[in-house]
């Protein structure tokens, strides 16, 4: 069984970078897949990788990460302008972030309009998500 844990943006909004990253990583270390509303800042993504590396041991082999935000898929000019305004109003609340434990998620592929999440063989087959 695969467990998805939804994290609303308001749960991390007022946390500092280190606390945000640790909160997400602690959920992932329970073998759950985090679906977070919004995205981390770029520096926080790097922090997430850095802390993940520090935590790697015989049981925890790391994470699979994917961020879906308006910049990551093709848009026309009008959509881009709308995106700029949305960005000003909503900031990092736009889009969503998927973080899965490497023991459960084999890989996440973005195509870029389609997301495919491949699970490890021990987990029930292949799961596929489409946007």
């Amino acid at each position: 069984m695969v467990t998805f844990h939804f994290v609303p943006y308001q749960d991390i909004e007022n946390l500092g970078s280190a606390k945000r990253v640790n909160k997400l990583l602690n959920i992932v270390k329970e073998d759950k897949i985090v679906i977070m509303e919004g995205r981390l800042r770029k520096e926080e993504e790097a922090d997430l990788i850095e802390i993940t590396m520090e935590e790697i041991n015989a049981k925890f082999h790391g994470i699979e990460l994917s961020v879906i935000s308006p910049e990551t898929y093709s848009q026309n000019a009008v959509q881009k302008i709308k995106g700029v305004f949305a960005n000003v109003l909503l900031g990092d609340r736009i889009g969503f972030t998927i973080i899965g434990p490497a023991s459960v998620v084999k890989k996440i592929e973005r195509n870029p309009d389609k997301i495919e999440m491949f699970m490890k063989e021990s987990v029930n087959g292949k799961k596929k998500k489409r946007r």
């Binding site: 520096e43 993504e45 790097a46 990788i49 990460l65 961020v67 990551t72 592929e109 973005r110 870029p112």
Partner: peptide, 13 residues
């Protein structure tokens, strides 16, 4: 795959 999150995170940083 160029859209790998590691690529995007490195370039974004």
């Amino acid at each position: 795959d160029p859209y790998s999150q590691v690529n995007i995170t490195i370039i974004g940083n």
